[in-house]
Design a protein around this nucleic acid. Structure first.
Lengths: 235, 235
DNA sequence: CGTCTAATTGAGTTTGGTCAAATGGAGTGG
DNA sequence: CCACTCCATTTGACCAAACTCAATTAGACG
């Protein structure tokens, strides 16, 4: 069940069997959320952290005028709110962007476990720092790149992140987002997302239909996006 | 020397005397960086984390075409690269935006200290999560708010953060950034920063000359910025 | 007084937004 | 099997916030 999480933790350093065993013992039985459901509500103070096992989740901030910004996307193997172990309350809601299967780690058990295994504590800390590094990359992408580059960058990033947990291969992966949802990620309008996607298709770089992405020319897409994967710490 | 850091850590929970003592012992003698100097170079892998004692530092990503994005501002009491304790290499450079006095915590000493004091480890983790929460807020601000709102939001945030460490009072504080540097923070052009500042002055909300900011109407400024300080975790 | 940097102004341009309508495709019920 | 509905995608026309480029003004400092 924790295979994908362990693969991510391993980017910090190998997870020892007793650490893994400890983790497995504290996780609660899986639960399911349907696409569109809210997994955790904004401003709540969860007593457990949620790990995605399958599907796709997003952190979404909704504003007064109804506009929304998705500040993070979480794939299987990602904790969506590990930070709530340390910081409360949550400053955003977590939504299921596709049907999700999740499990949770109660904070109290997590505290005991991390006090027993300081290295595991740092590996979990590492995961939250990876989130922060992605936030910074998105700040650059949204602040300083045009719409075409942003879209290209997002696709490069999701390709690598999903490949890292065995959910992308040969530039092919599932990304079941509507164009309106992509607009909330990239800070664009739905209309413009549509035009940009058409442009990427016209350029022969990407095919994206029915939630399935296929990157046709990864080298050129990465060049266009000025994509440097260092920040993902995949080693 | 660590008074401001301790005040920040205290937002997680009180720092015990033995924890504070441990911290004080590992910090190296202060060093000074002049405005404009690079404190840490992008892609380097520091063996110590840098704490700002005085001045103002920023994390800056410079792009191929010369455009820059500042992804974080750090005031006295902030670690600028605590994440480098866990993650390497750095995906951005740290620059002194004003003359800075800094001290550092060697990673090896930090490791021993945090293994002895798990609660202190979590308090430091908390600091990096606070950075991440600010990143998310900036994503919303840059992605979904217009230039006037962004500027207003930045001023509200810096006012609270500086007040928290005793460097702002009554809406007055030092923010010695040029308009070009502000542009790199807010993802605007220098020219537009200038126009927006004039507009805020004209509205009677803010005075900002010679690096000194004075917020004249905090309530209205916060309303304009749709500023909700929850994310800063100041309790 | 001259120099250098930062701030300011003006004119013209552009990227991406808004609004509204049309098209397409999947699922449903008769 | 077809009509209908619902939602996502697509298209077109127009608009506006912010950008670029270039020049001017204002301060600070030696």
């Amino acid at each position: 069940m924790l295979e994908r999480l362990v693969r991510k933790l391993a980017h910090y350093g190998p997870v020892r069997p007793d650490e893994l065993d400890g983790l497995e013992r504290i996780m609660t039985p899986p639960r399911v959320f349907a696409r569109g459901e809210e997994i955790i509500r904004q401003f709540s103070s969860p007593r457990e952290s949620t790990l995605v096992l399958a599907g796709l989740a997003g952190r979404r901030v909704t504003m007064e005028d109804g506009a929304a910004q998705v500040t993070a996307l979480h794939t299987p193997g990602d904790f969506v709110d590990l930070h709530s172990f340390v910081v409360a309350p949550l400053d955003h809601s977590i939504v299921a962007l596709a049907d999700c299967r999740v499990t949770t780690a109660p904070h109290e058990a997590l505290r005991l476990l991390t006090e027993r295994f300081p290295r595991l504590a740092r590996a979990l800390w590492f995961l939250t720092l990876l989130d922060a590094a992605i936030h910074r990359q998105w700040l650059v992408m949204i602040g300083r790149r045009d719409a075409l580059e942003r879209m290209a960058h997002l696709l490069c990033e999701m390709n690598l992140r999903l490949a890292d947990v065995g959910l992308a291969a040969g530039g092919r992966f599932e990304l079941p987002l509507t164009q309106a949802e992509v607009a909330d990620v990239l800070s664009l309008s739905t209309v413009h997302v549509n035009r940009v996607l058409q442009e990427l298709r016209r350029m022969g770089l990407v095919a994206w239909t029915q939630g399935r992405v296929e990157i046709l020319d990864g080298r050129e897409l990465a060049r266009l996006a000025q994509f440097d994967p260092t920040y993902l710490q995949l080693n």
